[in-house]
């Protein structure tokens, strides 16, 4: 009964309801009249993806990937090289297949996989950074793989390894929203000047 009334309430609220797992659509940022503030707010929303465990685990603070929603160290222990692959003799694809692969062993329901499974380069580590610091790093060609903002958009909106975050295999929560909605936020952020949000007091 209780569930039914909640469902009725949600139906009554219609499309204005944005579930926590969704991303706010770009249209909802129009009410922020200041362009720079709007841009920073768009990035802050997109950062819900960048700061999600599915992304952070392969953008660690050092060369050791992490796992799970609590970002615990990768088991078995692994240390990637500068290019993002395992040490000589133990490349990522020793274990990670070209696709997510189910296991028959609980509690590990699947081993994540992708044809280009690898760790982000050291210049793109995100763990431990504030949203502002990630924003500045993403824009900085010296750290982002010499990408223009246009290329950054292309990478985030279309790259299938980025897209893995929304298709992470059984036993793993996906990043919020969809890659399409994420790409639209990034496009709108760039179109409004690619401003970075200020650090929140808690970040300082």
């Amino acid at each position: 009964m209780m569930c039914r009334s909640i469902l009725v309430m949600i139906a009554a609220l219609g499309t204005s309801v944005t579930l926590a797992a969704d991303l706010r659509p770009v249209s909802t940022f129009k009410k922020i009249s200041n362009r720079t503030e709007r841009s920073a707010a768009l990035f802050t929303e997109a950062a819900r993806v960048l700061e999600h465990p599915r992304c952070l685990n392969c953008h660690p603070a050092d060369r050791t990937p992490t796992q799970g929603d609590d970002l615990h160290p990768h088991n078995p222990p692994i240390r990637a090289d500068e290019e993002g692959h395992g040490p000589p003799g133990l490349p990522c694809n020793t274990c990670h297949q070209v696709q997510n692969t189910p296991t028959n062993v609980t509690p590990i329901e699947s081993i994540p996989g992708h044809a280009h499974w690898m760790l982000a380069p050291p210049s793109m580590s995100w763990q431990g950074l504030t949203t502002r610091q990630i924003c500045e790093q993403v824009k900085d060609p010296a750290r982002n793989g010499k990408r223009t903002l246009e290329k950054i958009h292309e990478h985030l909106a279309l790259d299938t390894l980025v897209g893995w975050a929304w298709n992470p295999g059984a036993g793993r929560a996906a990043a919020p929203g969809t890659q399409k909605a994420f790409g639209e936020l990034i496009a709108a952020w760039i179109a409004t000047g690619a401003a970075c949000p200020a650090d929140r007091p808690a970040d300082r």
Partner: peptide, 15 residues
């Protein structure tokens, strides 16, 4: 890696 150090061995054999 034909001449691995202790560290190189530990990194690979940890699996």
């Amino acid at each position: 890696n034909p001449r691995p150090s202790d560290d190189d061995i530990d990194m690979v054999m940890a699996g």
